[in-house]
């Protein structure tokens, strides 16, 4: 079943067109990753899907009563705003505490309910954001560079968590990522964006596509192979990936 259909989407800020003629579909249970250089319109695409940006042309169609769980790129909580994890999880949904605990477990950070949001570590914070997105058992999870600020083992384990969430809940996942290596192996489909859709397909297809190579260089093709193995251990700085 198709959950999100984006057709001929154009997004412009003033005279500056950031997205043109973007077509994208997301079906239930799929993990689709959007990659692209800075300024390629990745975040604008997600913002258009959640309704935060009005399209200049084209349209975004969501299936009726689609529940979206959204994990923003960065969320700054002002020091003057006291808020516990429990309260943050129930920001817009009046759910019982037991569901909050379930969501925290699913996000891999149990027992944080009474902590202040501003006192969490970067990794805990991102996982609480994930838990909040999971709280109303969404049909689609939208993640905008959710691992920003996490180190490599941290983001690898975050993405493993996402895969587990998909397995457990069956929700579709549309995510933006800079971590080409980690992400590619987990995705069913990769969309390479640079103002328009350059190429899309399975990770292996995209990694070998000339458009993708032109944007990211050939070096990252090797990284895909490197990170395809199960990442159940930590190792030193990954020079291999950089080479």
């Amino acid at each position: 079943m198709t959950l999100i259909t984006v057709t001929n989407l154009c997004v412009a800020y003033g005279a500056n067109t950031v997205l043109r003629d973007v077509d994208l579909t997301l079906s239930s249970g799929e993990i689709v990753t959007i990659v692209g250089p800075n300024g390629s319109g990745k975040t604008s695409l997600l913002r258009a899907i959640i309704g935060a940006t009005k399209p200049a042309a084209g349209q975004v169609q969501l299936s009726p009563r689609l529940k979206i769980g959204y994990v923003p790129q960065k969320l700054h909580i002002d020091q003057t705003l006291p808020i516990t994890v429990a309260r943050f999880l129930r920001l817009t949904e009046r759910v019982p505490l037991s569901k909050c605990n379930e969501a925290l477990n699913a996000a891999g950070v149990p027992d944080l309910l009474d902590r202040q949001m501003t006192q969490l570590s970067g990794g805990q914070f991102q996982r609480v954001l994930l838990a909040r997105a999971l709280i109303n058992t969404p049909d689609v999870l939208l993640l905008d560079e959710a691992t920003q600020g996490l180190d490599q083992p941290g983001s690898a384990s975050f993405y493993r968590q996402i895969e587990m969430v998909r397995e457990q809940t069956g929700c579709a996942i549309l995510m933006i990522s800079h971590d080409l290596h980690v992400v590619m192996s987990a995705s069913d489909r990769v969309v390479c964006l640079n103002g328009h859709v350059c190429c899309q397909g399975s990770p292996a297809v995209v990694a070998s596509a000339p458009e993708y190579r032109a944007l990211f260089g050939a070096g990252t093709g090797g990284a895909l192979a490197l990170y395809r193995h199960d990442h159940d251990h930590h190792h030193g700085p990954s020079q291999k990936a950089a080479e």
Binding site: G51, A52, Y70, P72, I77, L81, I83, T92
Partner: peptide, 19 residues
């Protein structure tokens, strides 16, 4: 209250919740 609080925390988060 809830809508105001969500909007104060993060505008995109609010949009995604239909606020």
């Amino acid at each position: 209250w809830s809508a105001l609080l969500a909007s104060t925390l993060n505008e995109d988060l609010a949009y995604a919740s239909g606020i």
